[in-house]
Simulated scan of single mutants.
Amino acid sequence: MIVIYGIKESLNPIKSTLSDIIQFCMSQELGLPESKRAHRIIPMDKSDFYYPQGRNDSYTVIEINMMSGRHVKTKKSLIKRLFSEIATQLNISPINIEITIKEQEAHCWGFRGMTGDEVMDLKYKVNV
Rank of each mutant, 00 (worst) to 15 (best):
L90A: 07
S93P: 04
L82P: 12
Q104D: 06
K76F: 10
F83K: 08
C108T: 07
S84E: 15
F111W: 03
K80E: 07
M66R: 15
I101K: 02
K75C: 06
F111E: 06
E98A: 14
N96I: 05
S77N: 14
R81G: 03
N91E: 10
E98M: 11
G113T: 06
S93K: 09
T88E: 15
F111Y: 10
L78T: 06
I97D: 02
H107K: 12
K73F: 03
M66P: 00
K80D: 09
I92V: 06
R81I: 00
I97V: 15
M67R: 13
S84H: 15
E85C: 11
K102P: 00
E85N: 09
C108P: 00
K102R: 13
F83H: 06
K80A: 10
S93G: 05
G69I: 08
I86G: 02
I92R: 05
G113Q: 03
I95S: 11
A106W: 03
S84Y: 09
R112K: 06
Q104T: 11
W109K: 08
S77H: 07
T88S: 14
S93I: 08
S77I: 01
S77T: 09
F83I: 08
M67V: 11
K102S: 09
I86R: 03
T100Y: 07
G69C: 10
H107N: 13
V72G: 03
I99C: 14
E105K: 12
V72K: 14
P94I: 11
R112Q: 07
S93L: 07
N96G: 10
V72R: 13
E103T: 14
H71P: 03
C108S: 08
S77W: 01
K76Y: 07
L82M: 14
E85R: 13
K76Q: 15
I92W: 00
T74K: 14
P94N: 12
I95D: 11
I97R: 07
G113C: 09
K102M: 00
T100H: 03
S77P: 07
R81M: 13
Q104C: 00
K80P: 01
W109S: 07
G113F: 04
L90K: 10
K76M: 11
A106E: 04
S84N: 14
A106H: 04
P94F: 05
A87V: 01
A106Y: 02
R70E: 04
S77G: 11
H71I: 08
K73R: 06
L82V: 02
N96E: 01
Q89D: 09
I95V: 12
I86Y: 08
F83P: 02
S77Y: 04
G113P: 02
P94K: 09
K102Q: 07
I95C: 03
E103P: 02
K80L: 11
I86N: 03
E103W: 05
S84L: 13
K75N: 13
L78W: 02
A87W: 03
R81T: 14
G110E: 01
H107T: 08
S68D: 12
R81C: 10
S68V: 04
F83A: 04
N96K: 10
K73L: 12
N91R: 14
H107L: 08
K75V: 13
K76A: 02
I95W: 02
E85F: 02
S93V: 02
I95H: 13
E103G: 03
G110F: 08
E105S: 13
